[in-house]
Simulated assay, not measured.
Amino acid sequence: MPMPADVMDLETPCLLLDEQRLRANVARMKTHLASLGVAFRPHLKTAKSLDVARIAMTSPSGPATVSTLREAEYFAAGGVRDMIYAVGIAPAKLPRVSAIRAAGADLAVILDSIEQADAVAAHATRTGDAIPALIEIDADGHRSGVAPDDAATLVAIGQRLATGGAALRGVLLHAGDSYALNNPAAIADAAEAERIAAVTAANALRSAGLPCPIVSVGSTPTARYARDLTGVTEVRAGVFMFGDLYQAGVSSVDFGDIALSVLATVIGHQKAKGWIIVDAGWMALSRDRGTAKQAVDQAYGQVCDLAGRLYPDLVVADANQEHGIVALRKGAAAALPDLPIGARIRILTNHACATGAQYDRYHVLDAAGAVSAVWPRVNGW
């Protein structure tokens, strides 16, 4: 099937990716991290695309971070060899991890308990696959992990891995609490707290005679505003590549950096209510309403014209499964634009990861706004 060169020829809703913005976002992050003397291990959970991965990674073989084993299989098939599966390992998934490793990829797992370490060690003894593992550290009480100052647990986990035939690869942190901040100085402080937690945990392992070659940190906010990464070996970040309204709300990206949007078509009007109806509902945009807790609630997304220019105060105010209700924000002074039936709009969404998960491909836009390529993406677990 010939590829459409004009967005007006695309079936809607569909996912648009601005290649120029994507490349600029990646280049800016790589330059920043290089200035701090650390390696970059991009998190590919947002992109889930080999084409995007090849732009983001420092080499065709990696390194990279994944959030599902389906991603690991997909990227391994595409030649990526150095990966961390950055979700706490479930013992039942270890045979699948070994299968990916047997196919040639150096896939590491993460864990934060002696029970998980025992499972990895038992699997290594049984199969001969010395699966490398990183210990997840809890820097901010946001999610999983061992407290950085809990040396006894850290050492116990490390020893179970080492004596059981597995391999201790290092420590890994995710400063998830940084997503609740919106001040660059506060985010920089969170990045420093993340660094200190990582180094503290790494030193505890090393003091016990255990190896800790990798000290891995990362979130999009802290990666952008980190001032010093002494003692850290690598940074993981991913959503910055595309950007979204939530990240703009926490000052991780600027609105002009957002590379991902949903193309939709006007299918109706409710003029008495000030509504424009489009064919992109929550199935196309996702139900993520994370910006509702921010200073500016973006509802289900901000509306742009085909060139990506924002319509003032125009949002997807509500959404049904396949219908989006476009309206002005309450109290807005702007006028509702004249968008007839069949008109096309672009919608910037709250969470690039959640929106992307609804689609199996990106329609890639060049600098002129024409469709220059179609890049497949992988979904599932």
Rank of each mutant, 00 (worst) to 15 (best):
Y300T: 06
Y300E: 05
Y300G: 03
Y300Q: 06
Q302E: 09
Q302H: 15
Q302M: 11
Q302N: 11
V303Q: 06
V303C: 01
C304R: 08
C304Y: 09
C304Q: 09
L306T: 10
L306Q: 07
L306C: 01
L306F: 08
L306I: 14
A307F: 04
A307P: 00
G308V: 01
R309W: 14
R309M: 12
R309T: 10
L310Y: 05
L310Q: 07
L310H: 11
Y311A: 00
Y311H: 04
P312E: 08
P312S: 02
P312M: 09
P312N: 05
P312I: 09
D313K: 11
L314V: 08
L314Q: 07
L314K: 05
L314D: 04
V315S: 02
V315L: 07
V315Q: 01
V316I: 08
V316A: 00
A317M: 07
D318R: 14
D318H: 14
D318S: 15
D318N: 15
D318L: 11
D318G: 05
D318Y: 13
A319W: 05
A319H: 10
A319T: 06
N320D: 15
N320P: 14
N320K: 15
Q321I: 13
E322M: 14
E322I: 14
E322K: 15
H323S: 14
H323P: 10
G324P: 03
G324Q: 01
G324K: 06
I325M: 09
V326E: 05
V326H: 00
L328S: 04
L328Y: 08
L328M: 03
L328C: 05
R329D: 03
R329H: 06
R329W: 14
K330F: 12
A332P: 01
A332K: 10
A333I: 06
A335I: 04
D338Q: 09
D338A: 12
L339N: 02
L339I: 04
L339D: 00
L339M: 04
P340M: 12
I341C: 14
G342I: 08
G342Y: 02
G342K: 13
A343I: 11
A343C: 07
A343K: 03
A343P: 03
A343M: 10
A343S: 08
I345F: 09
I345E: 06
I345V: 15
I345C: 12
I345R: 11
R346S: 06
R346P: 08
I347V: 07
I347E: 03
I347N: 00
L348N: 07
T349I: 05
N350H: 02
N350Y: 00
N350Q: 01
N350K: 02
H351P: 06
H351C: 08
H351W: 11
C353M: 13
A354S: 10
A354M: 14
G356N: 00
A357N: 03
Q358C: 11
Y359F: 13
Y359D: 08
Y359C: 04
Y359E: 09
Y359A: 06
D360V: 13
Y362N: 03
Y362W: 10
H363M: 10
V364C: 02
V364Y: 05
L365D: 00
L365F: 06
L365V: 02
D366L: 01
D366T: 01
A367G: 11
A368I: 05
G369N: 10
G369I: 12
G369L: 12
